[in-house]
Design a protein around this nucleic acid. Structure first.
Length: 287
DNA sequence: AAGAGGCCCTGATAGC
DNA sequence: TGCTATCAGGGCCTCT
């Protein structure tokens, strides 16, 4: 599910709902995520106030009032659900909370606040939560990550320095979080369509104009996706259970064998597997 | 040292 | 209906 736009949407909902709230209790239903959650995770969170919520790359960062941080990654299939206390006349003793949207399986972590709880659900378990005890640890965790597409640092010189001698194809670079952080498979494909660049192109063969396009369309595609509430493939939903709409704007992703949507282009969208990832591109206008 | 590939895990879907 | 195979939006580790 989650690339930068989807994580941004989740972050925005969290900001609305849990900022300045105090964690009453944490229940570890199933500690097996990408990294095993230990019991101290729950006790460390208890009674802490959430002072800060931000997003960096595909991570959500929660800043706590004792100076520590929780970082959260949704992996491939992670979702966060908010379950509000039902109206009084609906509450029964045994089901204090209820929500028809809540999945029954794979609810790994439950964080309980005064008037609601949030649930981290992740069938494929590629996601994780991790406690970092200081700003220094936080900084060190992200030290290997490249700039986001929106970052001023992501400019022509940066691309030139990183790419001009590399044989690796440009699509794999867009997926490489050390090069640019926040882009995943969907948006890498979409961005290269707008740039009219074939995904297999060796990075060293790109021209300055193509650098410019990569910078411009990376921002543009991601901004547009955020405005549309992210993309909902299979199961992405924001924490209130609503779907994003950007999938309706896909130009190449999941459009195998369909006509190219560029005006006056007679191309057909092709799909290939590269490094175990599907690549979608127009066989005519992407060169 | 860069780059390709395998792998962690479950679920949805397609094909027989 | 039920089996098996294939594919998923990520990222780390290992091997060449």
């Amino acid at each position: 599910m989650p690339e930068l736009p989807e994580v941004e949407i989740v972050k925005q909902s969290l900001q609305k709902n849990i900022k300045h709230k105090i964690i009453k209790k944490v229940i570890i239903n199933n500690p097996n995520l990408r990294f095993k959650i230990n019991d101290s995770f729950a006790s460390n969170l208890k009674n802490k106030k959430i002072d800060l919520i931000r997003r960096l790359s595909k991570y959500i960062i929660l800043g706590l009032n004792n100076g520590s941080f929780v970082i959260l990654h949704l992996g491939m299939s992670g979702t966060i659900h908010i379950v509000k206390k039902g109206r009084k006349n609906k509450i029964t003793n045994s089901s204090f909370y209820s929500s028809p949207l809540l999945p029954k399986k794979h609810n790994h972590i439950i964080i309980i606040f005064d008037k609601f709880k949030i649930i981290f659900n992740d069938p494929r378990r590629f996601g994780f939560l991790k406690m970092l005890s200081s700003k220094r640890e936080l900084k060190s965790f992200f030290s290997n990550y490249g700039p986001e597409p929106f970052d001023k640092k992501f400019d022509i010189n940066y691309l030139k320095n990183k790419l001009s001698k590399k044989t690796k194809n440009i699509k794999n670079y867009l997926l490489d979080q050390k090069f640019v952080s926040g882009i995943g498979n969907i948006y890498a494909n979409e961005i290269l369509f707008f740039c009219k660049i074939k995904p297999f192109t060796q990075s060293r063969k790109l021209k300055i104009d193509q650098y410019k396009n990569i910078i411009f369309y990376s921002k543009k595609v991601l901004t547009h996706a955020i405005k549309k509430g992210g993309s909902s493939i299979q199961n992405f939903k924001n924490i209130d259970g609503n779907k994003g709409l950007f999938q309706d704007n896909f130009k190449v992703y999941q459009r195998e064998n369909l006509k190219c949507l560029r005006k006056k282009c007679s191309g057909i969208i092709k799909k290939k597997m590269v490094t175990n990832r599907s690549v979608f591109y127009c066989n005519i206008c992407q060169k």
